[in-house]
Nucleic acid binder design. Structure first.
Length: 426
RNA sequence: GGAAAAGUGGCAGAGUGGUUGAUCGCGACGGUCUCGAAAACCGUUUUACCAGUAAUGGUAACGGGGGUUCGAAUCCCCCCUUUUCCGCCA
């Protein structure tokens, strides 16, 4: 959520920034109009409340002296009625402002390139060691999965629906190995504290991180209990500190956590439907940071490096993109996508995005810190990144490590976890 | 699922319709004393919003939301959370 005061002070900047994010700058005008109305109403109603408060004291005094206060009471009755009316109008105006703000995206950081679509994203760097150079035509991950008997999309569709893959045998073990490898690396080498969060959260949490109200149709819901299946561990982990205030010296707080992720992917039917490319349930280890605004952009760069270390260790070719304003997600002020190479698709697949949300989520979720003992609390900056999602990484991993006979070589760093070196065709 | 109790300022804990934003204590902060510290003593100590350059003034907030009343921390209704007991399940 954006800061109403800052909007009031710099309306033109905000309009331009919103427009660069391909959203409607008229929202800013609407907010400002409602804000004027709101402040007028506040002036009126608070004046009335002030008189009521003094007269009410007079009434109390008269009653104490056994004097008659009937006329004052009658007078205050009409004042109170008017107050009630104005309060209603006021809360209507405030609700409207809030509603618009909840649907208004974060504004991009100045270092974000202006652009209209994914085509305008800027490639920052590339790491190609391990690119597929073998002498045969690579199979795609679906064919490999079938050949080796490690992935079962058909039975997944039978028991749950399409987009719910089943991992079998060494496939399941490999999935588990990846998750453990990510968590161990981030906790042991990168200084994150591990969290194993609930996979289901309440509405407040979904609002706090910005999934609600705008993206309600993307969530799986548990209607009877008013709960939501999480689309990412970002939601429970960021909300751990909802309505809390950090001490400055506690920052940066760094968490990593595994969760299954549930996404309805409403409206994206027919797009990337093959195998793992777009699924309703997948596994992810998420990185979350609560940072002092002063250093938050350094923390973003560090987070990208943390993810890169994993890919380098796995010897998966990848590239880093800096997203342009038009491709930036609703919550983000700046975002890097990390894409892994799929030799069978002959393209890069998004496997991670690392974002700085600045105070956008912190304002919604009321997460603050005290710069020093005597100062007023300020909002922290929240950051998060996938470190990593297993499904698209699995695509790259299987395809890049396949051999001519259809077997798949396990990257060395994972063998300690899998306790096998190779997956043979079934 | 059933029953009971509780939810007040950083913490602890008073307060059952009228100057109560809220006694007292602890903590924190500032000061006196001291070479320094402790102790003691004095003082300060919530947040949000509105108006104002500011000093300051005003409004609101006692788990959340409604209601009664001229007036609600205090009365009524609904919800949430916590604790305890019973049942059920692991």
């Amino acid at each position: 959520m954006l800061d109403l005061k800052l909007i009031r002070e710099n309306p033109d900047t905000y309009k331009a920034k919103i427009e660069s994010k391909l959203d409607d700058p008229k929202k800013i005008d609407q907010i400002l109009e409602l804000d004027v109305r709101r402040r007028t109403l506040i002036g009126e109603v608070e004046t009335l409340k002030a008189t009521r408060n003094t007269v009410t004291n007079d009434i109390a005094q008269k009653k104490k002296n056994k004097e008659n206060a009937d006329s004052l009471i009658a007078e205050m009755k009409t004042v109170s009625d008017r107050i009630k009316e104005l309060d209603t109008e006021l809360s209507e105006a405030e609700n409207k402002i809030n509603e618009i703000l909840l649907y208004t995206p974060n504004i991009p950081h100045d270092s974000v390139p202006v652009g209209k679509s994914a085509a305008d994203n800027v490639e920052v760097r590339r790491w190609e060691t391990g690119t597929f150079t073998k002498e045969f035509k690579p199979l795609d991950h679906i064919e490999l999965g079938k050949k080796c008997g490690i992935l079962d999309f058909e039975r997944g569709a039978k028991i749950s629906g399409s987009g719910f893959p089943v991992y079998v045998g060494k496939g399941a073990a490999l999935e588990r190995a990846l998750i453990n490898f990510f968590l161990d690396t981030h906790t042991a080498n990168h200084g994150y504290k591990e969290i194993f969060p609930p996979f289901v959260v309440n509405e407040e949490s979904m609002k706090g991180t910005g999934q609600l109200p705008k993206f309600a149709e993307d969530m799986y819901t548990i209607q009877a209990d008013g709960l939501y299946l999480i689309p990412t561990a970002e939601v429970p982990i960021t909300n751990l500190h909802r309505n809390e205030t950090f001490k400055a010296e506690e920052l940066t707080v760094k968490y990593c956590g595994y969760s299954a992720c549930f996404r309805r992917e409403a409206g994206s039917y027919g797009k990337d439907t093959k195998g793992f490319l777009r699924v309703h349930q997948f596994n992810k280890v998420e990185l979350v940071k609560f940072a002092n605004p002063v250093g938050s952009y350094n923390e973003l760069e560090n987070m990208v490096n943390d993810v890169e270390n994993i890919l380098k260790a796995l010897k998966v070719p990848y590239r880093i993109l800096l997203l342009c304003t038009g491709d930036l997600s609703f919550n983000a002020a700046k975002c890097y996508d990390i894409e892994v190479w799929s030799p069978a698709e002959n393209k890069y697949l998004e496997a991670s995005s690392c974002s700085n949300f600045q105070d956008f989520q912190a304002r919604r979720a009321n997460i603050r810190f005290k710069p020093d003992a005597n100062s007023k609390p300020e909002y922290v900056h929240t950051l998060n990144g996938s470190g990593l999602a297993t499904s698209r990484l699995m695509v790259s991993l299987l395809e890049n490590n396949q051999n001519a006979d259809g077997s798949i070589t396990i990257p060395e760093v994972l063998r300690h976890y899998t306790r096998f070196d190779v997956i043979e065709p079934a």
